[in-house]
Structure formats: structure tokens, C-alpha cells
Write a protein that binds this DNA or RNA. Structure first.
Lengths: 149, 149
DNA sequence: TATATATTATTCATATATGAATAAACGTCG
DNA sequence: CGACGTTTATTCATATATGAATAATATATA
């Protein structure tokens, strides 16, 4: 009576899997959105914060190609992003005497300060996220995410 | 000697948490990208497939506002998406006699067939994803995702 | 050295997304 | 009924992203 009948389910396995796949997509988007909302408070977007952070971590001007690699996006995207960052006064384009094709992006003082402000906002979102993950096996979650790669 | 010194870690807790948060974002993006790549083979994008699927599930024409709600996006986005779907011949705009402000989107036969083709591609990505999740506690993953909401 | 191939950034066309402003139609309430 | 506020879709400006085409410079090779 209580016996589980193997091979029979109310909702098909495929349906559950689809839900899982789209849950992964939607969760990523939801977190992105929270980050965007937090960053807009300091005049940044996630894209802008990412670029500033890579520049900060590099510790020196980096070429736009290098920046595109770090951000895993195409170069034309970086061209536009740097246009906006430059318009905001957060970044300066500098020539590379070693390679006259290249253009490097340099953080301005304002850009550096803005990155710091952004990082604080990101940390808040992170703390909130961690709270919601209370009672969840985070190691297993990490394992799942790195399996998907 | 082997004792764990509490409160001291090589990489700070905050750093791990940041990694986890960005892993969630990046995983979502990676899956999205796989879906886009699969769907482009049948002439669809994820956004287009989503709209077609909602129309299919509704079983009848739905207003653009309704579609925006289902897709959790703003209406101007749907206006543009429907422009493109209409240009592709996958959808037709029809008037709503009940409410003359409203415009409804109706699936064409081609749109319906395209949705079917898209669903097959999505299923393949899903199957691939499931394989990589071999050995992962999927219920715990589901729990984590629904905790984040 | 001269030519061919690579790489660099930019520009352009396009897709996706948001939010503000607008016009038309709907509903309500005095 | 008529004025007012709401809802509908659209348009516009903008941000983010891709990929193709282009121009300038580097590098390799014949």
C-alpha cells in the first residue's frame, strides 16, 4: 500500500529538470538584479563595477583587449563600456608606447574611489544572500556550480 | 597541533562568499549562453523562444501586457520583441474588440512549429546539464535555489 | 626587405533590456 | 454626462551585449 511504484511519477522527470535549469538561470538573474540595484546607489552598473575592479586588481593600466578577456566579452563591448566610463570620469584612455595599436585604460582617482564604494554595496548584497542560504549545504552548492562550470 | 584555530582562515569568509555569489551569476549566464547557442540553430533566441512558449501554453492570443508579466519584463521590451517576432512571421498582432487599447499576440502556424523545434533544442541542453550534475544532490541544489528565490 | 598574416581598437548594424514620455481608450465618481 | 485617473501600447533615449567590417600597427615568413 505504501509501496513506491518505481518508474511512475506524477510530473515527468523532464519537467523537473527543466525547472531546475531555468531556476539556475533565474537565480543568476535575480542576484544580478540585486547587484545592479545596489550599485546604482553609487552611480555604477555591474558592468562598470566589473571593469573598475579588474583595473584595480591589475594595479596598472591594462589594454582594452586584456580587459575584454578578463570580462569574457568581445572587444567592441569594452570599447563602448570605456567610452561610458571615460564620460563618467572614472577611467582615462592612455597610449601604449610599446604597441601603438593598443590603448590602455587607467583608473582615475574618482574611478578608484567609486570602485571602493561599489565594493561596499556588493558586500551588502553578499551578506543578504548569505543569510538566505542559512541551513543550506553551501559546499554542496559550490560543488554543483563548479560541476556545471 | 592539528587543532583548528577558530576565527582564522587563510582566505577570508567574505572572499568565499563573493565567489559563491558570482558563481551563481556566472552559472546562470553560462546556461543561458548554451540555450542561446542551441536555439540559434532553429532561428530563435531565448527571448523569442520564451514568448512563443508562453503563447503556446496560453493556448490563445494574449495581450502584450500579459506577455510582459509572464516574462517579467517591461512592456516596451515586449513591443520590440513582438516587432521582431512579427517580422520573422512567427506571431501576428490582432486587435482586441473587448478593449480597444489592447493588442494581442497570436501564434502563427510557423511560430507554433518553431516553438516545437526550440523545445527540442532546449531539451538537449537540459539533458547535457543533467549529465554534468551526476553525483550532485539535486534536491539540495533545488533547496538552495528556492531559498534565494 | 617585402609580403602575408595577426592583432588592436573602432565603427556599424542589430538584439535585448530598462524607464520616461506620449496618445488612445477605459473606468469611475461626482 | 464629463472630468480625472488608470491602463494600453508605442516611441525615444540609453545601457549592455554580440559579431562583421575596417584601419592601423605588429609580427612572421619567404
Amino acid at each position: 500500500m505504501n509501496k513506491r511504484r518505481s518508474g511512475i511519477r506524477h510530473s515527468s522527470a523532464g519537467e523537473n529538470d527543466r525547472q531546475l535549469m531555468f531556476s539556475l538561470v533565474n537565480t543568476g538573474r535575480a542576484i544580478e538584479q540585486r547587484l545592479e540595484e545596489a550599485l546604482v546607489r553609487v552611480g555604477l552598473s555591474l558592468a562598470k563595477f566589473g571593469a573598475l575592479t579588474h583595473l584595480r586588481e591589475a594595479g596598472e593600466p591594462i589594454s582594452l583587449s586584456e580587459c575584454a578577456k578578463k570580462m569574457t566579452c568581445v572587444r567592441s563591448n569594452i570599447t563602448q563600456l570605456m567610452d561610458r566610463l571615460e564620460a563618467d570620469g572614472l577611467v582615462r584612455r592612455v597610449e601604449d608606447p610599446q604597441d601603438r595599436r593598443a590603448v590602455k585604460a587607467a583608473l582615475t582617482r574618482l574611478g578608484s574611489a567609486r570602485q571602493t564604494a561599489g565594493a561596499k554595496e556588493v558586500a551588502k548584497v553578499q551578506a543578504e544572500l548569505l543569510k538566505t542560504l542559512n541551513g543550506i549545504d553551501q559546499d554542496e552548492l559550490r560543488r554543483a556550480l563548479s560541476a556545471i562550470k
